[in-house]
Design a binder for these strands. Structure first.
Length: 429
RNA sequence: GUGGCUGUAGCUCAGGUGGUUAGAGCGUCGGGUUGUGAUCCCGAAGGCCGGGGGUUCGAGUCCCCUCAGUCACCCCA
């Protein structure tokens, strides 16, 4: 079996596999923040949570485009025990579209998700084999107002959590007629430069648009003079793109039109957008992005359904957050810390009362010395230390100490939970 | 998938030209103070020096392979 050979290869099998990692507290506190804020905002915009399987039949994801790297070389696929060809989700849209086609909800179908994606590729900072994306999709509406709403949803989220280094770039892939004409012109242009392109010429023949975002320095000048898709937009495609831009302006959203913006997945049509940050490495500076995919539902056997969506990489978002000084983990994790000088079951009761009263609270275990318990109370970041001690207990009191200034008072045992609750009110996630 | 760099305690890192029992700071645990933290002092635990092979009397140190991380590509969130 493979497990034996892994060990033989010198792989430490009791470590997270290559390209994966564990997220522990307090780092994971930031994930809670991201997920809850994004979820709250999406619901405010009228989106509902959708949960689709982590794996699907291979063919679902293959619709992303056979010529894309995601499908041709990065798919985590395998045969299951029933000989089904299964693949782990490489991105969020395909599964959501499959669910739409399967359930046929009444449009507009507005959904959001937070889910892991899998791609078999060489890991780097901000690029993992298992990474998480938050995303959203709207199916069944062609209105450019939806394009604007989506961009506003993601851009507003970035602003809310304090990412101030992200900038928005947009482009349009036009309609089928646009792409047919543009593809021809572009391919001619590539052929005229085939010696310079070298190996990339193969890709140019296969998918002319994808050459546009090559990072090779020697292509820079050639790319700058390449024909631009915005010159080839048909009237209706151009009109849609104009309305999107007008909508973005009307809500004060700054953006740049980048005619060379293309995205890695073949299903995109019409509006395309990306949020980039200079805090990320040059070749992978996209925090999140998406676009229209008006033909995908049909390709999965559903009705013709205009649609648009985006994905945003959580790990990358965190890199940007660090650079921008956003999403700092909150220092205090509890409000109260119980110190036990009596050794009775009353500690258990008091903690229960505190927690039921909404007070985040903790204690030391294992009968440690008072000194150690108070040290632990200090380290916990709690505002108050509550000590159960024999002398005060005799008169029905406990000691409450404000750990920020060392002041100590006595409070009635039966009132202490309520007293601390009102003195530590705070917003919890 | 291709190429470069890195890999010593939980964390951050020291360990000229190979030489006895591998160190520090922080953190953890215990004690000084068995009714009191944030200062101070003392002590302890904790290391297949990423893994394997080789050169050598002797390898954390040199060579090869490998695993992992990281950077640049391909590409992508």
């Amino acid at each position: 079996m493979a497990t034996d050979s892994d060990a033989a290869l010198g792989r430490d099998v009791f470590r997270a596999p290559k390209g994966t990692r564990d997220v522990l507290a307090p780092e994971s506190d930031r994930w809670i923040e991201i997920i809850t804020r994004f979820g709250a905002r999406a619901r405010r915009y009228g989106y509902g949570l959708v949960i689709t399987p982590v794996f699907e039949h291979y063919e679902v994801f293959a619709r992303i485009g056979e010529s894309t790297d995601v499908v041709s070389k990065e798919m985590y696929d395998f045969l299951d025990k029933g000989d089904r060809r299964i693949a782990l989700r490489p991105e969020g849209t395909a599964g959501a579209v499959r669910a739409y086609v399967e359930h046929r909800p009444t449009p507009p179908w507005k959904v959001f998700y937070v889910a892991p994606n899998f791609r078999y590729e060489r890991p780097q900072a901000g690029r993992y084999r298992q990474h998480y994306q938050i995303g959203a999709e709207v199916m069944g509406v062609d209105d450019p107002a939806v394009d604007v709403e989506m961009i506003d949803l993601l851009g507003g989220f970035y602003r809310e959590i304090g990412l101030n280094s992200v900038r928005l770039v947009i482009n349009s892939m036009g309609d089928a007629e646009t792409r047919r004409r543009y593809r021809e012109v572009l391919l001619e242009y590539w052929r005229a430069h085939s010696t310079l392109l070298g190996d990339t010429m193969e890709r140019a023949e296969q998918n002319p648009l994808r050459v546009l975002d090559s990072k090779k320095p020697e292509f820079k000048e050639m790319l700058q003079h390449a024909p631009q898709i915005t010159e080839y937009l048909t009237d209706s495609a151009g009109n849609h793109f104009e309305q999107v831009q007008a909508g973005l302006r009307s809500i004060g959203n700054h953006f740049e039109v980048e005619p060379r913006l293309v995205r890695g997945l073949d299903y995109y049509t019409s509006t395309l957008f990306e949020f980039r940050s200079d805090s990320l490495a040059a070749g992978q500076d996209t925090v999140g992005g998406g676009g229209r995919y008006d033909k995908l539902a049909q390709e999965m056997g559903g009705p013709a359904t205009p649609a648009i969506g985006f994905g945003c990489g959580v790990e990358r978002l965190l890199i940007v957050a660090d650079a921008d000084g956003a999403l700092a983990p909150s220092p205090a994790r509890v409000d109260a810390y119980v110190v036990d000088a009596v050794g009775t079951a009353d500690v258990v009761v008091l903690l229960h009362e505190l927690r039921e009263a909404g007070v985040a609270s903790d204690r030391a275990y294992g009968g440690r010395s008072l000194k150690k318990q108070w040290a632990a109370a200090d380290k916990s970041g709690a505002r108050y230390g509550v000590m159960l001690a024999p002398r005060e207990m005799e008169t029905g009191h406990v000691v409450v100490k404000d750990l920020t200034n060392g002041q100590q008072i006595e409070i009635r045992r039966d009132e202490v939970a309520a007293w601390i609750a009102v003195n530590t009110q705070r917003r919890d996630f």
